[in-house]
């Protein structure tokens, strides 16, 4: 099998993950895009491991570590998502603008509420 077959598969999965991160509004769906990108990287690592055949088995071991880190990341991210849902009542990432350095958006009204709360006029 040519080496570029798994690499192309990984590239396509990575691009699909990029699309999900850019376009989805729900934070959980954004997380799914991140998972797709991590899996693409893992395919790369495994393919190069099968090609190099080195004694350290670095590719497969690093892929294993990436899976563990991804599990930790999902656990933390879901805690943050639940926290945001508890404080805001939604988890739509493009409406979470309290930290944005820009003018208030009159259509969504986000940012105004935060300023009202602090007594800023």
């Amino acid at each position: 099998m040519p080496l570029w077959w798994p690499l192309v598969l990984a590239s396509l999965l990575f691009a699909i993950g990029v699309y999900a991160v850019l376009v989805r509004r729900n934070a959980v769906l954004v997380l799914m895009g991140v998972e797709l990108m991590l899996n693409a990287v893992n395919i790369n690592l495994v393919a190069f491991d099968a090609w190099f055949r080195d004694v350290l088995h670095g590719g497969q071991t690093l892929a294993l570590f990436v899976i563990v880190i991804a599990a930790a990341e999902v656990g933390l991210a879901l805690a943050i998502v639940l926290r945001v849902f508890r404080t805001h009542g939604h988890i739509e990432v493009d409406r979470l603008r309290e930290l944005a350095d820009r003018d208030l958006d009159p259509s969504t009204g986000s940012g105004r509420r935060e300023l009202d709360r602090r007594g800023v006029r």
Partner: peptide, 23 residues
Amino acid sequence: GVALLVAAVLVTTVVAGFSEVTL
């Protein structure tokens, strides 16, 4: 568009770099 560009860059890079290599 961005995702397509990412896919195009990555695919052309890996095909140009590893098209000779067989697994």
